[in-house]
Write a protein that binds this DNA or RNA. Structure first.
Lengths: 170, 170
DNA sequence: AGAAAATATATGACTTGTCACGTATTTATT
DNA sequence: AATAAATACGTGACAAGTCATATATTTTCT
């Protein structure tokens, strides 16, 4: 809808937009934001968890207690995001946290009964969403997609200096 | 690097991580964030523009003056992001803004000489980055990638209700 | 023309996410 | 054992992005 302008845009604008539509550096953030929005709306239907809360409860419910570092690694996000979200989740009694006795640096996070209840309210909604996605992409297409993302990720981990000093090879 | 743990993670954690690695809803935000970080580091080398500033100057330099709505459409982002960034850019004298005389709702944004200079400082760095990406993906692979993103995007525009009430078809 | 609907922009409140840096603890080195 | 290096986490500061809502201006409909 929003693409169809009632007023005629000038060609230079349309050209620019069309050109940018193949720019992965533009497309990925856009897709990611849209995905986040859709997830937030789904979670509204499933009890009102935030995305971070949902992901955390999901991981804990499926894989059991783990450290903040493990959660961040599974969710492919920064530990600080969890570090900030977890105290709030503990306040809501979704999780319990305690220092690891074998490694005093680590915090073990564990889901509570109330956390599991919240998870089970959201889970059917989120499962439907995943099923709906599987109706759009075949298994093979998902693997292609993921393979491209793997390669894109590894490109993104190239330090900026290496990208830019392509002449200065040692 | 961060994937290789010196301490042995339990299998349940590794299994969970591996399972989640094919979850597009996890992978896309991760790739997008990594892309943003890399861009920010590149822009540090190219004069210190923010991402929003860079995208805006790029569009204005390449396609000429346009409205906020046009910029948002090209950048596939929310207009409010631009709405907030532009006054700051005007203060830095990167852009000029004036009301459209033909449509008093619209604001026409135009690049200044100083804005163009900032653009030209950043542009070679960002061009190198795009070239580096083209060394990783063939033209055909990019098109495949973009095609998958198109389909993912259109899935994401499905309203949450439609996803969830798949039984209740009218 | 006048009322109603649509559009463009601004703004407050919020979420997700990064980075840099500090502290505590553990592991590695000498 | 003592020191150095690495690791886990917490936290401040900030960027990017969304949504809802308000306001001004056009457009459309009657």
């Amino acid at each position: 809808m929003s693409d169809v302008k009632s007023r005629v845009s000038e060609d230079r604008i349309l050209d620019r937009r069309s050109r940018e539509s193949t720019n992965l550096f533009t497309r990925l953030p856009a897709a990611s934001s849209a995905s986040r929005s859709q997830a937030q709306r789904c979670l509204q239907y499933g009890g009102g968890l935030s995305i971070v809360e949902w992901r955390t409860l999901w991981d804990l419910a499926e894989a059991g207690p783990m450290t903040i570092r493990d959660l961040a690694s599974i969710q492919r996000t920064d530990h600080s995001l969890l570090s900030r979200a977890l105290p709030e989740m503990r306040k809501k009694a979704y999780v319990e946290m305690h220092r690891d006795s074998r490694d005093g640096r680590q915090t073990i996070v564990e889901i509570t009964a109330k956390g599991r209840a919240a998870y089970e309210t959201a889970a059917p909604v989120m499962r439907r969403r995943r099923e709906a996605l599987r109706a759009v992409f075949t298994e093979a297409e998902i693997l292609t997609f993921v393979g491209l993302l793997d390669r894109f990720d590894s490109f993104l981990q190239t330090p900026a200096e290496d990208l830019l000093d392509k002449d200065r090879k040692e």
